[in-house]
Design a protein around this nucleic acid. Sequence first.
DNA 1: CAGCAAAACTAACAGCAGTTAGTTAATGCC
DNA 2: GGCATTAACTAACTGCTGTTAGTTTTGCTG
Lengths: 226, 226
Amino acid sequence: MPMSTLTAEAEIEVRRSRKGEQTADRILDAAEALFAEHGYEGTTLRDVAAAVGIRTPSLYNHFESKDALYSAVLERGLRPVRELLDEFAKSRPDDRTDSSIVEGIMDILSQRPDIARLVQHETLTGGRRLTGMLRAWIQPLFESSADMVVNSPVPIPWTAEQVPLLILALYHVIIGFFTMAPFYKEMMGEDLLAEEGLALQTAFVRELVDRLFVDPKLLSEDSGTR
Amino acid sequence: MPMSTLTAEAEIEVRRSRKGEQTADRILDAAEALFAEHGYEGTTLRDVAAAVGIRTPSLYNHFESKDALYSAVLERGLRPVRELLDEFAKSRPDDRTDSSIVEGIMDILSQRPDIARLVQHETLTGGRRLTGMLRAWIQPLFESSADMVVNSPVPIPWTAEQVPLLILALYHVIIGFFTMAPFYKEMMGEDLLAEEGLALQTAFVRELVDRLFVDPKLLSEDSGTR
DNA sequence: CAGCAAAACTAACAGCAGTTAGTTAATGCC
DNA sequence: GGCATTAACTAACTGCTGTTAGTTTTGCTG
């Protein structure tokens, strides 16, 4: 009975989209927030369940383990980033601008600051859970970015050795802003993740990129590059 | 018997410096490395004891709890930073250069990269354990740095609103380098914490500071500022 | 409305966490 | 060398963790 199998599967999918996936999403939301704040080991499944409003074993109706839940959180959170990078990789080198990725990532992280903190937790603990995911994208991205900068038609005011450090620095400026925001708010009283702060930071990063990638010696002849 | 009390205390101190403090230091070393890599919750006292080569309960002869051990690690690790900041606060404003703190911190973190990762773990989880320590130094440092930059005799090519973001960015460039180094090594195969990499990064940061704090429009008249 | 799967629940378990009590070995001083 | 104190050890406990088994409720479909 091959047909009944097929329809059964179809039915399951339909139903899941009704209620099952709804709570699965709620679980992912809660888990994302908790993992982002307390890290993997610091987050308990009881906390996740409590945040969702269900009992702990019910989580296992949607995810087969804590590890699988964490992976799902990471997968869902990083999907927009992956798509952005894929798009970038497919694009013609001529169409790429210095800040196309930069601003794209700023947008993504602005909408979901927890992602930034998740990634930071990962890289801090050695990124062993990112192996299959981020590592596969980050490494080529990093290398191609370096190539791109080095082989840029416009002369870059940095040596080839410095380019990886420059990319690393830019990465930290961007992602660090989001990871530090809650701490900054508690310390300084100002919420950097509010609309105003985000706009300020976006403009700041844009200006930073401009200033770091344009040789100051060439500034007199062409002031408005981008 | 007040005298005997005094001599008894003195004796204890002398003895502690013989052997007790030796293993206490070994415990701190092992704990620092483990906390830096796995965070507070991800580190078990059994792991610490095993790394030292003793049984778990023996740790309690030197530290009264896991929390106390962690605080001691943080305290010892941040002492050089605190001393640097104190010195900076006492110095006459005229003697301060843009990069005096920057290079000092680079030196400290170069010798003990784990400190950087410890601090990152803290700020990621909200920095609740830093309350009494770092927060008391960081906040004034941050504010005075901002004031210093804004009121600089040399015109700064950033608006007053952008200055906190600039300081934050610099902070992340410096500390992020050390937290990312192990991950970078695993990904790219190159050890940034080796002598060569450190020298490169130090020079890079120095150049970055120069480039970010000097108005490019003024560059023609004075090229070798520092 | 009957039936059925999905998803909630309760009860419970094995393992490991931090920690304590009580004991033995090591260490430095008179 | 005897003695006091520190610091190692073994044994054990409580509480919490992720996880499983078995049961009841929910929500959709024919």
